[in-house]
């Protein structure tokens, strides 16, 4: 079974927010809410400074506290690619999963259910790419199967310096940032 993940090249990303707009359009994300967002991290002291621009979203973790704590089974790991999803009609809106995610990747949809990035699984199942990946003008995002050593994502992780976000939280995130 595939294990979908993402690789994002921070050396190429310019923070244009095309991925943010594409996600909002593709997934009808309600006004004032974001399934993906841009974080700029400035590190160091002049003249030795470095700036990293990260396009962030749910990390579709291998260890999923959000799924474990869900009392109804609404939050679940999908059969295809191990993508973490929410079944709207099973969600009671208890917000346990929002509190359990160390990335604060989830929010409550105005209709009452917990919502977040789906890796555009509706497109991926048709053989297309997630909206954010497909629109990126600098081609800094890669999507694929982390379990396949020949996939583009696996090769990039093997060959380039990279880091996931907050690995110390222990959720084993599946988005890697090339630096």
């Amino acid at each position: 079974m595939a294990r979908y993940g993402m690789v994002i090249d921070t050396k190429k990303c310019v923070g244009c927010m095309d991925c943010v707009v594409a996600c909002k359009t593709e997934n009808n994300v309600p006004e004032g809410h974001n399934r993906d967002w841009i974080v700029t991290v400035a590190n160091g002291k002049f003249p030795d400074v470095n700036l990293e621009i990260q396009s962030q979203r749910c990390n579709h973790c291998d260890n999923t506290p959000c799924v474990a704590c869900c009392p109804t089974g609404a939050s679940h790991v999908h059969d295809v690619g191990g993508v973490v999803l929410v079944e709207h009609n099973m969600c009671i809106g208890c917000k346990a999963c929002l509190a359990a995610c160390p990335y604060d990747a989830r929010f409550v949809h105005p209709d009452g259910y917990a919502d977040k990035c789906t890796f555009c699984i509706h497109s991926v199942e048709k053989g297309e790419l997630p909206a954010c990946v497909s629109v990126c003008p600098t081609h800094c995002m890669y999507f694929g199967d982390l379990d396949d050593p020949n996939s583009e994502v696996s090769k990039l992780i093997a060959s380039r310096k990279n880091h996931p976000l907050i690995p110390e939280a222990g959720t084993k995130p599946r988005i890697f940032y090339l630096t």
């Binding site: 004032g32 809410h33 700029t40």
Partner: peptide, 10 residues
């Protein structure tokens, strides 16, 4: 750190 996210309740 600067973020463009401002999800309500979060």
């Amino acid at each position: 750190l600067t973020t463009t996210r401002h999800n309500p309740q979060i």
